[in-house]
């Protein structure tokens, strides 16, 4: 504690070291420099041809049209991110709107490659809420999924389909020997529900 206090004292001392004022000689040197700049600027403005301004404006407009990022998409932002937290923030942004088909397709692609399990769970949750996932292809990555919480999220999404289309996928998944008992129980329940329907 004493050590910490003496460090804090040192930091205060460093911050409070006195500052010397700039001498009048230095101020005068700057004023001389300023005068020179003003002369230069005046010379340039009286010499420049009038057509230059118009040409510059046209060039600027062309540059604006070519390079302005009209409608930079959320997907583009996501691809540019490396940090999992930043990526998750982008998915959260997406969650505020109604998902379109292209959003669902994109999320399906992200699920195949995204490494962070929290992001995968959140995406699956999003797809489940919006009930806009019409294709059971979204469940394909389940077979390779190793994180139990994510497996569970896939199964919760699968419940939405409840069709024989996904039965094969569930049966194959159920055969894995490394499943957590909760996950095994869930798969069995869903399979049973499909069979009973």
């Amino acid at each position: 504690m004493k050590e910490q206090e003496s460090y804090e004292e040192l930091v205060e001392q460093l911050k409070q070291l006195p500052k010397k004022e700039v001498s009048s000689a230095v101020n005068q040197r700057f004023e001389a420099m300023e005068e020179l700049w003003n002369k230069e600027t005046h010379r340039k403005s009286s010499n420049s041809p009038k057509w230059y301004g118009i040409a510059a404006s046209i060039a600027a407009l062309i540059a604006l049209l070519l390079w302005w990022p009209f409608g930079t998409s959320i997907q583009d932002h996501y691809s540019a991110m490396e940090d999992a937290s930043d990526k998750m923030a982008i998915i959260h942004e997406l969650s505020a709107k109604t998902l379109q088909d292209n959003d669902v397709a994109w999320l399906g692609d992200v699920l195949k490659t995204e490494e962070n399990p929290n992001i995968r769970v959140f995406i699956l949750d999003l797809l489940e809420i919006h009930e806009s996932a019409e294709t059971h292809d979204l469940l394909n990555p389940l077979q390779e999924e190793n994180v139990p919480a994510v497996q569970m999220a896939y199964l919760n999404l699968a419940r939405q389909f409840e069709s024989e289309e996904i039965m094969d996928q569930l049966v194959v998944f159920q055969r894995r020997t490394d499943l957590d008992p909760s996950v095994t129980e869930k798969v069995a329940t869903i399979i049973s529900e499909i069979n009973n329907n």
Binding site: K19, K20, E21, V22, V26, N27, F30, E34, W37
Partner: peptide, 14 residues
């Protein structure tokens, strides 16, 4: 430039 000089001269000088 004059305004910037007034703002920053002391700290940069020191």
């Amino acid at each position: 430039m004059g305004t910037l000089f007034e703002r920053y001269k002391t700290i940069i000088y020191n």
